[in-house]
Design a protein around this nucleic acid. Sequence first.
DNA 1: GAGTCAATGTCGCAG
DNA 2: CTGCGACGTTGACTC
Lengths: 230, 230
Amino acid sequence: MRTVYATCSVEYSGRLDAHLEMANRLLMVKADGSVLVHSDGGSYKPLNWMSPPATMKVREPDIEEAEAGVTEVWEVAHKKTSDLLVIRLFEIIADVAHDLGEEPGLVKDGVEAHLQALLAEQVDRLGGGSLVRREYPTPIGPVDLMIRDGEGTYVAVEVKRRGEIDGVEQLTRYLELLGRDPLLQPLRGIFAAQIIKPQARVLAEDRGIECVILDYDEMRGIDHPEDRLF
Amino acid sequence: MRTVYATCSVEYSGRLDAHLEMANRLLMVKADGSVLVHSDGGSYKPLNWMSPPATMKVREPDIEEAEAGVTEVWEVAHKKTSDLLVIRLFEIIADVAHDLGEEPGLVKDGVEAHLQALLAEQVDRLGGGSLVRREYPTPIGPVDLMIRDGEGTYVAVEVKRRGEIDGVEQLTRYLELLGRDPLLQPLRGIFAAQIIKPQARVLAEDRGIECVILDYDEMRGIDHPEDRLF
DNA sequence: GAGTCAATGTCGCAG
DNA sequence: CTGCGACGTTGACTC
């Protein structure tokens, strides 16, 4: 990995054509030949980049470029497509390279899936009843849990880590579809999450959907104390 | 902008929970407090990150962390949500910071909007007729172009750079809605793109939607020869 | 601010 | 390898 702070201009040609006027930026060259051009803002998306696999060639500026002040030109070409990124460097402010070695990779902790699994075994947290099935299918996707409570009412449950409005909308769509099935009557919904945002709670309750706060640590502790990750 | 090569481990908690085991990585701290964690591979997406606006606090390691070899802990918190990124640094290999100054910004050419604008002026490429309007409104979003052909038939046009199945689906939804408006009868659809994938073409034609290939260079050349960048 | 749609999307999985 | 869908999507634009 190499990082270069430099005054540069950039031209990209590929799916589209784009260019960056001369300014100070951070250039990042990865081992696979890919290059990122970052500014001091925006989010993680670079201003311009070349995806791997790519090859970078450094060439001398031609006469015109040299007269404009260009000291070095990077031509980064994609190995498979005809995408080309041309970076003209005017001044290099800093240039650092280091070998990073092996990357163990990002590990995602499947909290939502785990919450759902635990909740399937702890139906009493939702007021009791018996589990019909997890991932209960509907034409627009599966409902996390389908339960039948003590009074024979079907309960569609949406499980989220953080309960926000889109989760309520999702459950509402399921309830609307499932409501057309005469075999699933009567039917109600529960929105279960570790945290439920006030707007989401208001929307849910306005639609007759019950909100339940889940305590993950407690659920995990009760079920399998050895499951604790931290 | 600050870039740090360091041996570190990372924990993220927000929309999901994720962690990175100890390894050498590049840390990038932007002026708005956002932080990116890059490895020497992958594409432009960092392994882990914190979006702006964010605040970074550097704290001393606690006893347990210090015993594990941690020399410094970065706690990067989002200013609006409860997202938190914790980076534990074991060794700093390099640490460089520079002020990049103003960023003039990326200038794009060849996007869908430009194609649509050119096509609005070159309706003959779609078989002729007169432009009713660009961005013709429907309850589910605007149709790119609405044309009335020589025989008085309305033509809804969806313009894409790359014509794929989802574009055909989009146009189909528009046609279904517009088809209910008695004032717009008769009505047909055209799917126009620089490239149309075979499956998309089959689907479109099966639904009675005409496919038109657009030559962007030719369209640009005819309209404003001085627009050519190269 | 909320909603909608495009993106040089990227990424992962299944067929 | 391709199609399909999700994403801590991000970004641009409208209402």
